[in-house]
Structure formats: structure tokens, C-alpha cells
Simulated scan of single mutants.
Amino acid sequence: MSRVYFHSPHRTAELRGSERAWLGGLITDIAIGALGLGSTARIDRLRELIHPDHYMAKQDTTGPGWLSAWASSYATAFSVGWSGSAPLIQHRGRAVETFELALNTALTLGGDAVKLGARLHGSCEIHAWVDGPNRSWLADIMQGGIDAGVYRDGFARQIGGGGTVWSDQGWGDVIALLRERDDEPVVTSYSVCDGFPDPGVGDWMPPWPKGVPRDWRELTEEQRNARSERSEEWYDLDDAEQWRISMAGLRASKKGLQLEPAGWSAFRFGHRLSVLDLVAADFEDRLDTALGSEKPST
């Protein structure tokens, strides 16, 4: 079963993958609720923004009871985002990622626990992190999320024979880890992606060759061998050196991975757009600004 790991130099705590799935569903539900799919006016707006090659552009809107069926199909399409090579939403030929829309809607509408859920769901795989002095602050948000029912401390899970067993989601140990000290960072990773410390974070691996797509298959055999050898050498380093190199990379990153009080309310992912921007009266101006689109000449 998958895990979200919270690593410190001294130990690691685990949050169950089922809790990340819970948070992902919550974030999607918030965004779909904000879309207002029960309103024909909202649906007309959303239809304007559907990519012409997406299957939702061909949905029937003439038959009896079409609105409910259309809304259900759109909600599913929003959760998935792309159909083949076509995004669900576009503006003047530019794709609008629905995953980022959902995350940013949660960040806009949610309290601190929802905000943290969005930050973890959106960046635990690429090493969201908290610095030592802010560990207690983050633990307080997690405890507040449990107390409010935004997070699940655990749940009863059925087992064979009709019995149940308590499934602890791991928040308690994560919170305990955060409160143990304030002089070390805590960094996330996801069990199906790279762990931490990570040789790809920092200056250990050679820079990706200029002009080459970031695809292993695009590298020459010589380049592959060089990167493989360098990656293997990573494991000859002691833990402290691996942490030093990886943390230097995280601290220099411009991806907004640090979880901290400064800028907490203003943070947004990617294009920074939320569902509220799509349905606003001045939606075209908002999308033009966010996507760098050029308005058609008049």
C-alpha cells in the first residue's frame, strides 16, 4: 500500500496512501462544487472553454434530462483532465490544467487544514518540506485538521469473516515527529516516486544535456552510462552528506515546496487559476493574464 513519507535526518514517519486519496477526493469535490454544474448559465460558460477535440465537446445538450447527464460527465472529465492529447479546458488555444485548478480552488476556499491537504497532494512527490522552526506550526495545522474531521485519524476497515480492524492513518506519528525537535527540516516523499534524500535534488547529478528532451530514451548510450554511474556513486555517500546535498537543492528551488507561514495564504500552483476564475464575469481577462494569451484584435 502506498505511503506519504515524512523524512527527517533522525527518523521517518508514514502517512497512509489511503489518506492522500481521501485528500485528493476532497480537493476535487470542492472544485466540482464550486463549478456550479446545476446552473445552465455556468454550463454555458464551461462549454465555451472545452477543447474542441475533447469528448465533452460532443456531448448532447438537446435531449430530455441532458443537464444532469452532462454535469455528471463533465465532473468525471474534470477529475481526469485530458482525453488523449486534448485537455478538457483551453483558452485561446492554451491548455488549462484541471489538477492545478482543483488544487488552487481548495487553496482559495479552504482553511489551513484544506490548504495543507492541497499542498501535500500537489507536491509530496517532489519533496514538499518544512524547516525546523516551523515544524510545530505545521503540527498544529495537522492536529486542527484531525479535530475538525478534515483529516481522518483512522477508520474501521472490514476484514474477512465480517470483522473489522482499525486502520490508523498515521497522522499521530507524523505530528509526533514534527514536535520532537525544531532544529532539522522534515521532507516528504511518495512511495511510488523518488525517496529522500534524492540524488536528483541538488548538484550531485550532472545537468541534463541542453537541447535534449527530458526523457531517458533521448540520451545517448554514453550519457546514460555517465548518469547511471553517477547515480550509483550516490550510495557511497554517508547519510549526512546526502542530506546536505539534497537540502541545498531544496532550499535553492523556486518551486514553492517549502511549507511556511510566510506566503501561506497567497500560495498557488502553476497557472494560479481556480474554478472561481473560470466562472467570474471577467473570466477572459483573468485567463489572458494567467496564461499570457493575446486578445483577438478588433
Rank of each mutant, 00 (worst) to 15 (best):
V201M: 06
E184S: 08
A106P: 10
G292L: 11
A176D: 06
A75K: 01
S228K: 03
S73I: 01
A102N: 10
S73K: 09
Q258H: 09
R251E: 11
F267C: 11
F99H: 13
R272E: 11
E14P: 05
A41V: 12
G249A: 00
D182P: 06
A248L: 02
S72R: 12
A95C: 03
P209S: 12
W171L: 03
L37C: 00
M1V: 04
V192G: 06
G117R: 01
R224Y: 05
L138V: 15
W204E: 02
D236H: 09
R244P: 04
A34D: 02
E97T: 15
W70L: 02
V96D: 00
D194Y: 08
A71L: 05
E222T: 06
S246C: 06
H7K: 01
R217D: 14
S265M: 15
G162V: 08
H91Q: 13
W216P: 01
S246Q: 02
E218V: 07
A156G: 07
S231L: 15
T61C: 07
L177Y: 03
L46H: 08
A113N: 06
S136V: 15
A102L: 11
R11P: 10
V80T: 15
W204P: 05
G160E: 10
K295T: 12
Y190L: 08
E125T: 08
R272S: 08
G117F: 03
L287W: 03
L259F: 04
V165Y: 04
E14S: 09
S79M: 05
A34Q: 01
V212L: 10
V201H: 05
G81Q: 05
P64H: 08
S265Q: 15
S79A: 09
S297I: 14
H91P: 01
K295N: 13
Q59P: 05
R227H: 04
L276N: 09
E97W: 08
W137C: 12
A139I: 11
W166M: 11
L291P: 11
G162W: 04
D215Y: 08
L257I: 07
G17C: 14
D239H: 09
S2Q: 11
L120D: 07
V96L: 00
E241M: 06
A31C: 14
P197R: 05
F196M: 02
I27N: 11
D153V: 01
A252Q: 08
H121W: 08
G154C: 10
L88N: 06
A106V: 13
D203F: 00
N104V: 06
M142I: 07
L178Y: 10
M56I: 02
R244G: 07
P207V: 12
Q90W: 03
M205K: 07
D60G: 03
G81F: 09
A266C: 14
I126Q: 04
S297C: 14
H127C: 12
T12R: 15
R272Q: 14
A71G: 03
E97Q: 15
R45T: 12
V150R: 00
K58A: 12
R217P: 10
R3N: 12
G263S: 14
R179T: 00
L237W: 01
V4Y: 00
C124L: 05
Q158A: 10
